[in-house]
Each structure stands twice: as C-alpha cells, then as structure tokens.
C-alpha cells in the first residue's frame, strides 16, 4: 500500500499550529500544545533555512504530516540540541579580513541551518511513540495499572490509548510485588504490544483484543485521536470547497462499565457504535461506550459542520480557528 502525499506550504503549518492550540485537548488526547509548539517552530525554522528543514507534506487520507516527516523534523531538532553555542567553522570575518562573496554565502547557509536547528531544539518534543505506566494497586498475584500509550500513526494521526487494567504478575516479573520500573514495564509489555499494533482500530475492537491476553482484565479503555484534518491544501474531503476550508477533528471513544448507556455524539462517525458494543463477547457485555468528536474549524467549515450536526441531532463542540 503506497502512501499518497500532498504538498502543502508553510502557511499550512502556521494554521495547523493555531488549530492545535485552539483544540483544547484534554488528557484523553495526545498533547496538542506541544504539537502546536513543534509545528510553529517547524514553520519558523523553514523560514530561516528552507533547504535543511523538512518540506511540509500531508497524507492524503489524514490531511496531516505523516510520521516519517515528524521523525525527520525531530532528528533535525535532536541535531540542534547537540550544537555548541558557536559554530566550529570560524566566521570569514574572524579568519579573513577581506570579505569574500563565496565564503559569505556558504557561511550564511551554514549559519541559517544551525540557527534553524537551534530554534527547533527549543521546541517541545512530540511523542511519536511513548508509554507511561502508573501502578494503581497491587494484590497478591496481579496489579492494577493505568497505561497511557501515545502513538503517531504512519499516516500522521496522533492516537492516545488510556487503559485501566489488571495485569498478572508472574515469575518473570520477579515476585509478587512490583518493585522497579523494569518490572512494571515487563508486566504490561504484552498489553502494550497489542494496543500499539491495533491502535488504528476502534475502541470496542481494542477491548476484545485486550481481553484475549491471559490474566488481563480491562476496567476502562479510552481512545483519543487528533486528526484527520480537512483543508483546502488537500486531505480528506469534508464538503467545504472554499479556500478557507479547515477543520481539525479530535475524536474520543470510551468503554467502561460505569457508563450508564451507550451513546454516540460523533458527527464524523461512519460506523454504528451501538452495533459494535452489541457485538462484544459475553464476558464484555457489561461495558458501555461513549463516543464524541469535536473540531477546530474555520468559519466556512464550522457552518457546514453545524448544519450536519443539527441534521443528525448531535451537539458537536466547534472551536473557532
């Protein structure tokens, strides 16, 4: 399967940064503020040194920069963090009293490149693949963990999966108590592997898969996604044909026995959540689901989304861009 990429310009990055800032993502979603900071620094660094900073492109399906582009940007950021405060190549003025156009030009290019890398180094790092695990409770043979897995999909969607689950302790973990971080990581490795592999699936499917792991009992599962993003440069079509079209979607699904009744407030959904929950195996029938979606949208896209939400009887939160 080949990835279709669409060229965008630096203005897209500024708009994406604004949208991520306006998204007001909570802890269900990957950190939108740090992503916004990185996107802003990306645009600013491109203005300084367009040849050394990755050219912005978006995936045709997600409308967002693909993972490999974020990875390249973070590599340049990492390089910036290793640069000394001054360049190891002396400036022509320090070496040569006679200004020489060629030296100035090469030196200027280098200075711009290093300045761009240093600027990126000041930006927050995006979590392309990260896991945090917190122990909530420890019993004789198992522990209750809260695992937060952040993952940038190859297409550029940022996914956060939060799971509260009982995980068995076994001999390989080293005893009945979780003592060190390595043990905690080992105890949850199976669950983490599974969730990471299936992070693109809807939450009910994730729950079913997690339930297949021996000894793992899920108490709550939340899947939050930043993206897709529909805009005039490309990406998925929303129906807004205007040049101002822009809508960044943030959707979340939660599965828990504590939810009173399954409900769906996702104006972008294309599948039937109730049917998915009904299809859960018997052992998981006590789970209920709640799905929601909000968007950061330009005025023209907001108008279109508001009409669509009204037609479906949904209350969609729309943040102004």
């Amino acid at each position: 399967m080949n990835q279709e990429l669409v060229d965008v310009d630096d203005a897209f990055l500024w708009r994406l940064a604004r949208a991520l800032t306006a998204a007001r993502g909570n802890d269900r979603f990957p950190q939108t503020r740090s992503l916004a900071g990185l996107a802003r620094s990306w645009a600013a660094a491109r203005a300084l040194s367009p040849t050394s900073v990755p050219v912005p492109v978006v995936d045709a399906d997600s409308g967002l920069p693909p993972w490999i582009t974020w990875a390249a940007l973070l590599a340049e950021r990492e390089l910036g963090r290793t640069l000394p405060s001054s360049s190891p190549v002396p400036a022509p003025a320090e070496i040569s009293p006679t200004p020489v156009a060629a030296a100035d030009s090469a030196r200027a290019r280098l200075q711009k490149r290093e300045a761009a890398a240093r600027l990126l180094a000041e930006a927050p790092a995006a979590r392309l693949l990260d896991v945090d695990v917190v122990v909530r409770r420890v019993e004789a043979s198992r522990s209750l963990l809260t695992m937060v897995l952040d993952r940038a999909d190859a297409s550029g969607l940022f996914v956060r999966i939060t799971v509260d689950a009982w995980v068995p302790l076994n001999a390989t973990v080293g005893g009945r108590e979780l003592v060190v971080d390595d043990d905690r990581a080992r105890a949850s490795a199976g669950l983490q592997d599974l969730l990471s592999l299936a992070s693109h699936l809807p939450a009910p499917a994730l729950l079913v898969r997690a339930a297949t792991l021996p000894g793992v009992v899920v108490e709550r599962l939340v899947r939050g996604v930043v993206g897709p993003c529909s805009h005039s440069w490309g990406g998925p079509a929303l129906g807004d044909e205007s040049s101002d079209a822009f809508a960044l979607v943030l959707s979340s699904e939660e599965l828990s026995p504590d939810i009173a009744a399954t409900s769906d407030n996702d104006v972008f959904a294309t599948d039937d959540l109730a049917a998915l929950v009904d299809a859960l195996p018997k052992s998981l029938r006590h789970f209920r689901a709640f799905r929601d979606a909000k968007a950061v949208a330009s005025p023209s896209s907001s108008k279109l989304l508001r009409v669509r939400a009204q037609q479906r009887g949904l209350k969609t939160v729309l943040h102004a861009l």
């Binding site: 590599a75 340049e76 390089l79 060629a102 030296a103």
Partner: peptide
Amino acid sequence: ETALAETKKASLLVDRFAALRDGLFA
C-alpha cells in the same frame, strides 16, 4: 529514526565542509 539522525548529522557536515572549502579558497 537512527538512520534519519545520522543522515542529518552527515548533511550538516556537508554544509560545514562547504563553508570551510569556500573559506580556504578565499
């Protein structure tokens, strides 16, 4: 990611060599 980081380091060296070469030529 490792390959990307190494490539970035190499391309920065290319830029530094270019500045050095021009300076030496001057």
